Amino acid sequence: MAFGILFRTIIAPGTFIAPGMVSLIVYKLCTVLLILGMNWLFIGQKIYFANLHVLTWVILLVVWLIESGLLVKVHGFGHLPWSITMALIPGFVEELGMRGVVFGALRQRLRGQHARLNAFIISAVLFALLHLVNLTGENVMAVLVQMISALGGGFLFAALYERSGNLLSAMVYHFSFDYITVGMGMPGVHTSAAATPVTFIAPLVVFVIEVLIAVAVMRLGKPEHRDRLAVKMGL
């Protein structure tokens, strides 16, 4: 978060969202290097990847084509590169750091009766708080909406990672979600209206849905298929 504030306010102020796509790419690239470097120096948390099944890729391709069709209908073809970039880079970087390193480290190191639940809660809350860095370029209401969405997403992304033992599954879901939700916006456009209870209805509904899906992901199916991450970690 400190690096994000430094980059947005001093290194590249006023250019982060639009037309600052280069700034975004540089910022996220530096973030990846920072995450990997700090993990290597201080934590040494192993991150688990595996390829997805062919059928999964086919389903994802269909979903992405549908999302692309909706974005083209609303904004035109020229909007797609921005939408893809704004979904792909955060989806990769945030999952690498928050699920791969943070959630993985919590799952492997926390002990006690509620260790698993605590890992979910702590990592999701940290993921939501991470979005406070956006206050450097967006208004408070927009950031609060992002934090609500991130909190629910934090539970779901962690559930996908834990069940599959494959960070790629969390990354592709994160990309798919951001591709349509962020992509429906426009570069450099931020909500400026005053916050009202109605403003938060949609994010709260999404939050509840994501938490319910996360619970289903962790509870449905055979016991040996519910926590492949723990098996890989030797828990």
Rank of each mutant, 00 (worst) to 15 (best):
M171S: 02
K46Y: 06
F175A: 02
P81H: 10
S176P: 02
L34P: 04
F7N: 01
V22P: 01
P90L: 05
E95L: 04
V102T: 07
I59P: 01
L167F: 09
L71G: 00
F175E: 02
G152M: 04
P13E: 05
H53D: 15
T9R: 11
C30T: 11
I25E: 01
L33C: 12
Y173H: 07
L65G: 13
G221N: 09
F120T: 01
L33T: 03
T85F: 03
L33H: 04
F77Y: 14
F3L: 07
V125R: 08
S164K: 10
P203H: 09
I84E: 02
G185N: 11
L144Y: 07
Q113D: 11
E210G: 00
L167Y: 03
R116I: 13
M86V: 12
F177R: 06
V140E: 09
T9I: 07
N118C: 06
R228D: 04
T15I: 13
G20Q: 03
G183C: 07
G137H: 07
I47E: 08
A202L: 15
G37K: 06
K46M: 08
L117E: 13
M147G: 05
G185K: 01
V206L: 15
F127E: 00
V93N: 01
H114M: 13
G185H: 02
M233I: 14
P197N: 08
G234D: 10
I213V: 15
H114C: 09
T199G: 12
I47M: 10
L33N: 03
T56W: 07
S176Q: 03
V182G: 00
G154P: 02
A124P: 00
V182N: 02
